[in-house]
């Protein structure tokens, strides 16, 4: 869904087991991702597992983490199924960490990237109760062009 090139991320992937010879069993899928911000994610990370719920997830009751903000940024940028996992991470990043010093650097590029416009909408929604954060994001949302422009505009409060 999200490509490495378009997301600007470089993932170092580790194989769970080494490739085998021809006609052997299929190569196991990588089970860790190292994100651009240095966070190492595993497929069974408790935050990822929480985001895989079918029903609503509360950002306020996510599993504790030494640097949850960085983990949310890493999850938002990663190619993780279901697609709502990165979207929920972006929402919670907006809801919980709009005042983090790294926030603008993390979310800013999403507003001008067609392949990540949905993350920009998600982060806008996450800041829905934070007028100051919305004010800071408004110029980015209003400067967007293309398919996401009208959608971003209607998610500004």
């Amino acid at each position: 869904m999200r490509t490495l090139l378009s997301s600007g991320l470089v993932f170092a992937t580790l194989l769970a087991s080494p490739p085998t010879a021809l006609a052997g069993p299929p190569v196991a899928a990588p089970d860790t991702i190292t994100a651009a911000n240095g966070v190492v994610l595993t497929n069974t990370d408790p935050v990822i597992t929480a985001f895989r719920s079918r029903d609503a997830v509360s950002c306020g009751s996510l599993p504790s983490d030494p640097d949850l903000a960085a983990k949310l940024d890493a999850i938002a940028e990663a190619d993780i199924a279901p697609s709502w996992v990165p979207m929920r991470a972006a929402t919670c990043l907006g809801e919980l960490y709009a005042n983090d010093a790294r926030f603008a650097d993390w979310v800013g590029p999403w507003f001008s990237d067609d392949d990540r416009g949905g993350l920009a909408v998600a982060v806008l929604d996450g800041t829905r109760s934070d007028a100051t954060a919305q004010q800071r994001l408004a110029p980015l949302a209003l400067a967007a062009t293309g398919r996401w422009a009208p959608i971003l505009a209607r998610h500004l409060r």
Binding site: M1, R2, R54, A81, P82, M87, W110, G118
Partner: peptide, 25 residues
Amino acid sequence: WMGHAGGNGNFSDGEIQMMGETMAH
């Protein structure tokens, strides 16, 4: 729809299956 289409807003086959399951769920 957006929660299912993800950041790029385009539906892959897997995302369509997930949204169909969400509707049924």
